[in-house]
């Protein structure tokens, strides 16, 4: 479902904390319908950049448009038109599955009636009828991540941002999660995803790799492997990350 419409565009986007530059003048574009892999070593600046694109953190300098809105002036509108699954926190452990769906769907501006309908529909699709009234805290991580993803796209956003959605998830559930990502792209949703699993980098249309706050490479997995003369994304990553200066 790739087309030429640009849904994310940044120009020299920068974020500093005191005298530390976490995101250093990154410029890139993401096309509508793309699965865009946002890779990089620990501390490279992925989460920080993602939070800016989601309208949750204001940049220090540079420009960024997300879903047609400006990250400085229209961050409230951005929040309505995107979905976000954070790295640390995705659901309330002490609310039930159904309550979480209704809570987060509500944040994204769905009406009470829509919430009921979509909530039931979602629980059915996830096959979680039996778990619907259980506390989220009692469920395995992989289930939580699936619920959290489904909730983040309940309002059919243009783009969904996923920050390490499969970290720590078992092999089968991890793959089921990617099935869900493909289904979402079939429904026209653009995916912006970070991961430390290099096999998952292969599933992206294009991949960028951040090193010390900057984007060091950006292309299709195929092209990246050719460029770095290696046969795996792991190889690409190892070559690039070795250039990192921060933390040495």
């Amino acid at each position: 479902m790739l087309n030429e419409e640009i849904v994310i565009k940044t120009n020299k986007l920068t974020k500093t904390f005191g005298d530390f530059t976490a995101v250093n003048a990154i410029s890139f574009e993401v096309k509508s319908g793309e699965i865009f892999g946002f890779l990089g070593a620990n501390g490279a600046g992925k989460t920080t950049a993602m939070r800016i694109l989601c309208g949750l953190l204001s940049p220090t300098s540079g420009e960024a448009m997300v879903a047609g809105y400006d990250v400085y002036k229209e961050n409230e509108l951005i929040k309505k038109h995107i979905g976000y699954m954070s790295q640390k926190f995705s659901l309330y452990e002490n609310l039930t599955v159904r309550e979480n769906i209704e809570f987060f769907g509500g944040i994204y501006g769905l009406s009470r009636k829509e919430l009921k309908e979509k909530g039931n529909d979602l629980i059915g699709r996830l096959g979680m009828e039996k778990e619907a009234n259980k506390l989220v805290g009692s469920l395995p991580l992989g289930w939580k991540q699936k619920i959290s993803f489904s909730t983040a796209i309940l309002h059919q956003p243009k783009i969904v941002f996923l920050d390490e959605p499969t970290g720590g998830v078992d092999p089968i559930t991890r793959r089921q999660f990617w099935d869900m990502i493909y289904e979402a792209t079939d429904a026209g949703i653009t995916i912006f995803v970070t991961t430390h699993y290099m096999d998952e980098a292969e599933y992206c249309n294009r991949v960028s790799i951040m090193v010390d706050g900057s984007i060091s490479a950006l292309d299709t997995p195929h092209q990246l492997k050719e460029q770095f003369e290696t046969d795996s994304m792991e190889g690409v990553f190892l070559k690039l990350a070795r250039q990192a200066k921060r933390g040495e």
Partner: peptide, 13 residues
């Protein structure tokens, strides 16, 4: 307990 969850491939090595 899952010390390398969230750790990048280079650091994992």
């Amino acid at each position: 307990d899952e010390p390398t969850t969230g750790v990048d491939p280079v650091s994992r090595k």
